[in-house]
Amino acid sequence: MAIKKKFYPLWYGVGIVIFMLYAGYKVFDNNGLIDWLQRHHAESLVETMKAEKPWIEETREFFGLLICVAVLAINWVYGERVKAKFN
């Protein structure tokens, strides 16, 4: 869609909201971010690529969702600038 200069800001907003809601779920999940911080004392998430402990995988997913939100937000801002330039 970017090649065709098509821009749908509503879908960026929808994506951000969905990813943020799911990230919020990952914060409070039994093996989520809070569990990792409190019960496991923020032990390393990057010792191995094999997630042998469930809180490692859940916490990695949380941070991955934050990256997705950041990328969508950057694309949204860039899209708005491009749209303004061509109008």
Rank of each mutant, 00 (worst) to 15 (best):
C68T: 10
P54W: 04
P9H: 10
K4R: 14
W36M: 04
M49H: 10
V17F: 06
P54L: 04
Y8H: 13
V77T: 06
Y25W: 11
C68Y: 14
L65Y: 15
L72R: 02
P9Y: 06
I34R: 14
I18E: 06
S44T: 11
T48L: 07
D29L: 01
K50T: 08
A51T: 15
I16D: 05
A2K: 09
E58I: 05
G15D: 04
I3W: 08
D29M: 01
G64Y: 05
S44Y: 03
N75Q: 09
I3C: 06
I3M: 14
E47I: 02
M1E: 11
P9M: 13
I56G: 07
E57K: 14
D29G: 02
F28S: 13
D35G: 03
K50D: 10
T48W: 02
E47K: 12
R60N: 04
I3A: 08
L21Y: 07
E58V: 08
Y8F: 07
G79N: 04
E43D: 13
M49C: 07
A70S: 14
M20Y: 13
D35N: 15
E61N: 13
G32V: 01
E61R: 14
F63M: 10
P54Y: 03
K6M: 03
V17P: 04
W55P: 01
E43Q: 10
L33N: 06
V77M: 15
F7V: 00
E52K: 15
R60Q: 04
L72M: 12
H41W: 06
N30C: 03
G13K: 14
L33S: 05
K53R: 11
T59A: 10
L72V: 02
H40W: 05
V69S: 04
F62M: 12
N75W: 11
F62C: 04
K53N: 09
N75G: 05
E80P: 00
V17E: 08
L33M: 14
W11Q: 06
G13Y: 05
Y78V: 15
K5S: 12
P9I: 11
Y22C: 02
G15V: 01
V71Y: 09
